[in-house]
Design a protein around this nucleic acid. Structure first.
Length: 361
DNA sequence: CGCCACATGTAACAAGACAT
DNA sequence: ATGTCTTGTTACATGTGGCG
């Protein structure tokens, strides 16, 4: 079958980015600091640090920004899928995927006996049968890449493709039908949903290949519980999940379990709670999602990294409150500054809360 | 036709209230 | 616990039509 998409098409910068000094990955991931990272940088650039730990790295936007500014960057995330993003963007200084390698990823290997785990497990849940089969093939091709950087680049493109094809860019509900419902849409991303996985994948390969950069430093990505990280860092950036006043927090493992499954393809089946309609993972007890424990975790983290400059991102209306975080920060830091970023509007949220940046020196 | 100005169309964007 | 439903502004993409 002839490929409908031009594999040789060059990556074209979005119009605005042509004038930006610093590159920023595009992503639909919740909590991404893509729209804030410029202002964060303005507030920390004069602190005089050479190394930084992005302790809750997520999309890697902040760590990647610091990398471009010549810092030695250490990235961490407890999700393995995010860890690969850190490997691709931050630890990787010069590996890219060639046209030939991408072509191979998109082609069925006649010598390999493919499993159909996604097609069987997620029928009618998130993607169409045809899309599920495509995912089964590509993820098993990616798995067999020997070079971890190439693997990470490919996973990056696969994750982004999976996200943009999902209504709300999440895996929290079984709602495949929303993509095909014949309703009048005043918003939504129907065009993006209808665009093929292959086309999205190619687009994001082009993006990640463009983003790969070498800042002359040995940068490193980890996949650890934040309290297991060893090392000395001039600055530690802390951007944990946000818990609202009602005690409802962003449970990333529940929102993005599908991506986490992709990087655990062989054991995915044992991670799924089959009783759930959306085939999510068994629940774990992440203290960062527990309104009774999160303040203590903040404080423990401040203590663990008390010798580093501490930079914290949080929201003005959460648990713990900004006042509580600030007073806990003062237990370990003499000079504490609090910056409020007003006029920050979340797209699907009507709340008028603001993002806050706290700096303890 | 080639170019430009302007008009129109389209995609994109931190989840959460409410019902069952 | 899970299913349903979903804003409105804005930047960019694409189309159109006039002009030399």
């Amino acid at each position: 079958m002839a490929r409908k998409y031009d594999i040789k098409k060059q990556f074209v910068l979005p119009f605005l980015e042509q004038f930006q000094e610093v590159r920023i990955p595009t992503t639909r991931y919740q909590g991404s600091k893509a729209k804030l990272v410029d202002r964060i940088w303005e507030n920390i650039k004069d602190l005089g640090f050479a190394s930084a730990l992005d302790a809750f790295g997520g999309t890697g936007v902040v760590g990647y920004y610091l990398k471009q500014h010549g810092k030695r960057v250490f990235y961490n995330d407890y999700l393995k899928s995010n860890y690969y993003i850190g490997v691709a963007l931050i630890e990787n200084n010069n590996i890219r995927l060639s046209e030939h390698e991408v072509e191979r990823l998109l082609t069925k290997d006649p010598k390999y006996d493919y499993r159909s785990f996604i097609a069987k497990t997620f029928k009618d849940v998130y993607y169409t049968d045809e899309e599920n089969q495509w995912l089964d093939m590509v993820v098993q091709n990616i798995e067999r890449l020997k070079n971890i950087y190439k693997k990470a680049l490919a996973y990056y493109a696969l994750f982004q493709a999976c996200l943009v094809k999902r209504p709300f860019n999440l895996f929290h509900r079984k709602n495949l039908h929303l993509r095909f419902a014949e309703v009048k849409r005043t918003f939504g991303n129907k065009a993006t949903w209808d665009k093929s996985f292959e086309e999205h994948f190619m687009d994001f390969i082009r993006e990640i290949n463009y983003l790969v950069c070498d800042n002359g430093k040995e940068n490193k990505a980890y996949n650890l519980d934040v309290f297991e990280i060893n090392g000395d860092f001039d600055l530690v950036y802390i951007d944990p999940p946000y818990t609202s006043l009602k005690g409802i927090s962003v449970d990333y493992k529940n929102f993005y379990h599908f991506l986490e499954g992709l990087v655990n393809y062989e054991k995915w089946g044992s991670m799924i709670d089959r009783r759930t309609i959306n085939k999510r993972f068994y629940r774990d007890n992440n203290p960062w999602n527990n309104k009774l424990k999160i303040r203590m975790k903040f404080r423990d983290l401040f203590e663990k990294f008390r010798d580093s400059i501490l930079v914290i991102s949080y929201r003005s209306d959460g648990i713990p409150s900004i006042q509580q975080i600030e007073s806990d920060l003062r237990l370990f830091k003499k000079r504490v500054r609090v910056h409020k970023f007003d006029n920050y509007k979340y797209v699907l949220s009507n709340s008028t809360t603001s993002e806050v940046l706290m700096i303890g020196e």
